[in-house]
Design a protein around this nucleic acid. Structure first.
Lengths: 117, 117
DNA sequence: TTGACATATGCCGATATGGACATATATTTG
DNA sequence: CAAATATATGTCCATATCGGCATATGTCAA
C-alpha cells in the first residue's frame, strides 16, 4: 500500500500553511482568486489549486460574480477539528495541573483519615 | 521547488488519522509502544514511526521504563492548533448568526431613534 | 468576433510519506 | 553469554503532493 490520501478532510486541508492563510483571509468577506494570490504572493494557479482542495472538503464556497469567482469561508467545516482538539484542552490547561494536585492532596488526606479511623 | 515537508508541526502531525488515534489513546495515561500497536491494530514499526513524528513536534514525550518506553501525551503542543481554529468559532457558531441579526436590528432601531430625535 | 481579463486544469519534476519487512539496538532473564 | 522481549531504523515501493508553466475555458467589453 502507499501513502494515504491527505487532502480529503479538514484536518489535512488545514495542514497546509498557505491554505490556512487563505482561510484567514476569507474571514469576514469573500474574495476573488487573484486578490488572494496577490495577498499570499503565490501564483494564481497555485491559489486555484489550494482553493479547490478547500472547496472539496467544504471549507469554502464559490460564487460566480461576472468574470470572477468569489470565494467565501465555510467555517462550519472546521468544527470537526475544533471538537477533536477541544477534547485535549483539559490536558494542557494549567487548571488541570492544579486540579490534579488538588486531587492528589485530597487522596493523601483521605488515606490519612482512613488510617486514623 | 518541491513538496513542502509536512511532518514538521502539530497541524501536520495531527493530519494523520492514526496519529490522532494515538494521541487519544494517550489521554490520561502513558502507554508502551506495543500496547498502542495492538490497540490500533497496526504493526509495531509503523507505530514507532508515528510516535517519532509526534515526538519531534512535541506532542508526546517518552520515558524509559526497563525494556519498554512509555509514551505520554504532551497536550500543550496542541494549543497552536486550538488557537488557530478557535479564531473561526464565531463564524460557524449559530450564536454568531443570532448575534448578527440582533446587531442588525439594534442598528435599525438606533437609526429609527436617531431620525425620531 | 476579437481582445483583455479571471480562473481552472493538465503535465512534469522533485520529494515527502505511509506501509511492509528485515534487522539493528537495548534491556531483562536464566 | 544466550535467549527472549521491546523498540527503533533502514530500505524499497507506490503514490500523493506542492510548485511552476503552458494552456484551456469562461466572461465582459468594444
Amino acid at each position: 500500500m502507499a501513502r494515504a490520501a491527505t487532502t480529503s478532510d479538514a484536518f489535512n486541508a488545514v495542514a497546509e500553511p498557505q491554505r490556512r492563510r487563505i482561510l484567514v483571509l476569507l474571514k469576514g468577506r469573500e474574495r476573488p482568486v487573484n486578490e488572494l494570490a496577490r495577498a499570499l504572493r503565490i501564483t494564481q494557479p497555485r491559489t486555484s489549486k489550494h482553493l479547490r482542495v478547500l472547496r472539496e472538503v467544504g471549507l469554502v464556497r464559490v460564487r460566480e460574480a461576472g468574470q470572477q469567482r468569489l470565494y467565501g469561508l465555510e467555517a462550519r467545516g472546521l468544527q470537526p477539528v475544533h471538537e477533536w482538539v477541544i477534547g485535549f484542552e483539559q490536558y494542557w490547561n494549567e487548571n488541570f495541573d492544579r486540579l490534579n494536585e488538588y486531587v492528589k492532596k485530597l487522596q493523601q488526606k483521605e488515606h490519612a483519615d482512613g488510617k486514623r479511623s
